[in-house]
Design a protein around this nucleic acid. Structure first.
Length: 201
DNA sequence: TGAATGATCACG
DNA sequence: GTGATCATTCAT
């Protein structure tokens, strides 16, 4: 694991489709009770906003997605399916409702805490999905709008992606064709839906 | 394959 | 106010 370096503000001010692949290999972390809980990002999805109908921000700002319209560099956390949280990296310029969904992490530090929260021991079951990684890191609505260049919640330089690939985004019903999901192809820590072929009747 | 589980948003 | 939908996960 490389030296943890804070990323420049401009890194987050790129468009979602530009930033999403560049986030692969970076480290997402949060200050935990026994030290930082962190993982290396191995899977992301770009949600650039209008006119992408799959983006929460497609029809303008609402109470839920207001944070997406802020200047890049903060977290957008939302609650969905009555069960799960998902975390995004807000990006692009202020006024543009754009973000990158973090879909999977390779666990790095705070693994015991992750195992406790997830109720699982295998490393591949800790952060292999957007809801799972939020549970492992303890992310919830409190963190919505948090600065990602702080010591509380942070994204730092990690290591280079070994093999970058792209595919359509997972779990959406609109704009399903465009390949705005990015992942490290040979990582064993990808989201489960990626491992099995999607069956839709 | 479908249940869990509740917030969100469009509509009017 | 109502109803459909939901950037998911887990057990069956």
């Amino acid at each position: 694991m490389g030296l943890a370096k804070r990323l420049p503000r401009d890194f987050f001010r790129q468009s979602a489709v530009e930033l999403a692949p560049q986030l692969i290999g970076k480290v997402l972390g949060i200050a935990g009770p026994q030290g930082p809980i962190s993982g290396r990002i191995v899977e992301t999805e770009a949600y650039p906003g209008y006119p992408d109908e799959a983006s929460h921000s497609a029809r303008g700002s609402t109470p839920r997605c207001e944070v997406m319209f802020r200047a890049g560099g903060v977290a957008y956390v939302y609650f969905t399916y009555g069960c799960h949280h998902c975390v995004n990296v807000v990006c692009d310029a202020e006024g543009i409702g754009a973000a990158v969904l973090i879909r999977a992490l390779e666990p790095l530090t705070g693994i015991a805490e992750m195992q406790k929260r997830r109720g699982k021991t295998k490393l591949t079951e800790l952060c292999s999905g957007p809801g799972k990684l939020c549970q492992a890191l303890g992310l919830n609505l409190i963190h919505n709008g948090f600065d990602l260049r702080s010591s509380e919640l942070f994204i730092t330089s990690g290591s280079k992606a070994s093999s970058l690939a792209s595919s359509p985004r997972i779990g959406i019903s609109k704009n399903k064709e465009v390949a705005w999901r990015f992942y490290e192809k040979d990582s064993p820590y990808l989201s489960q839906k990626n491992m099995t072929v999607k069956v839709k009747k």
